[in-house]
Design a protein around this nucleic acid. Structure first.
Length: 266
DNA sequence: AAGAGAGTCAACCGCGCAGGT
DNA sequence: AACCTGCGCGGTTGACTCTCT
């Protein structure tokens, strides 16, 4: 399937000028967002539609929050990253005014480094410990993968899911089931972490739910139903909900993490 | 003062998915 | 069913700024 690149000749590249910004803002103020491929032409910009979209979403939108991240935001990002991995857009969805790009940059330049240092220190202290068995103990981390979930997982796990909970008849599942044994044939190239067997996902409309994870011994851990429901409710963007971190969310996150930690093994 | 290296962040790139034809 | 278009995502790049020597 051919895919046309957005980066064709004749487009300006690099930093946006103030004049370009004004043209884009004026256009969107009048016509609204969307139809990005036609925006450059109609707005009189020598930019790709993609570039216009990015500039608007990450920089020009009126509600984009700029400047330093607060302690609360910092804290929330760390915890969300624990739960979600590099799913920046989902994380950004919980931080009003912050863009995925912003959070990604912030993570890569600040938090990621700290997290690495911390885990290196933990490893070091674990390996120096008098009780070496502790080094392989379960941690509180829920591993998730930064993928959109069109893949299904280990048949064993699916089977246990179908007996332990009502199966959601998603498009993806129907398609999968229509192909005999297709579940076993997830191409190696489509896996983010080919060394692991799959985590289990189901999707329904735009909702993507991660149903399983791994503990540090690489045993599959299922999220208990209660945690799962809470997580779904919490993650999916209901309209009009205030997603700023506040006490309620804080407690909610704590309780979610504790629920996830109670996951039983298969 | 100036050069080198590190850090930051806006922007680019390639890919995948959904929906339309 | 095959192909195309539009959009969104995560990873990466590179220009700019800051800090150190």
């Amino acid at each position: 399937m051919g895919r046309k690149s957005d980066s064709c000749e004749g487009f300006n590249k690099g930093a946006w000028t103030a004049n370009e910004d004004i043209l884009l803002i004026n256009y969107i103020n009048i016509h609204g967002e969307g139809k990005w491929t036609t925006v450059p032409c109609k707005a009189g910009l020598k930019r790709s539609g993609k570039s216009c979209r990015l500039r608007w979403l990450n920089y020009l939108r009126p509600n984009v929050k700029r400047g330093n991240f607060s302690e609360e935001e910092n804290d929330l990002i760390v915890r969300l990253h624990k739960l979600l991995g590099n799913r920046w857009s989902l994380i950004a969805g919980r931080l009003p005014g912050r863009t995925d790009n912003d959070i990604k940059n912030y993570w890569n330049t600040n938090l990621g480094k700290k997290a690495k240092e911390l885990s290196a220190m933990k490893k070091l202290s674990a390996s120096n410990s008098l009780m070496p068995s502790q080094a392989t103990n379960k941690t509180n981390v829920i591993r998730t993968k930064a993928i959109r979930c069109n893949k299904l997982a280990s048949p064993l796990f699916l089977q246990s899911l179908s007996t332990s909970r009502q199966k959601i008849p998603t498009k993806a599942l129907v398609a999968q089931e229509s192909k005999a044994n297709a579940v076993n044939e997830v191409p190696e190239s489509s896996k983010i972490c080919p060394n692991f067997e799959e985590e289990v996902f189901q999707e329904e409309d735009n909702m993507v739910v991660n149903y399983g994870s791994f503990n540090d011994d690489d045993n599959i851990v299922a999220f208990p139903d209660q945690a799962l429901m809470e997580f779904e409710r919490w993650m999916l963007n209901d309209e009009g909900v205030d997603y700023l971190p506040h006490d309620h969310d804080d407690d909610q996150i704590k309780s979610l993490i504790s629920l996830f930690d109670m996951g039983g093994e298969f």
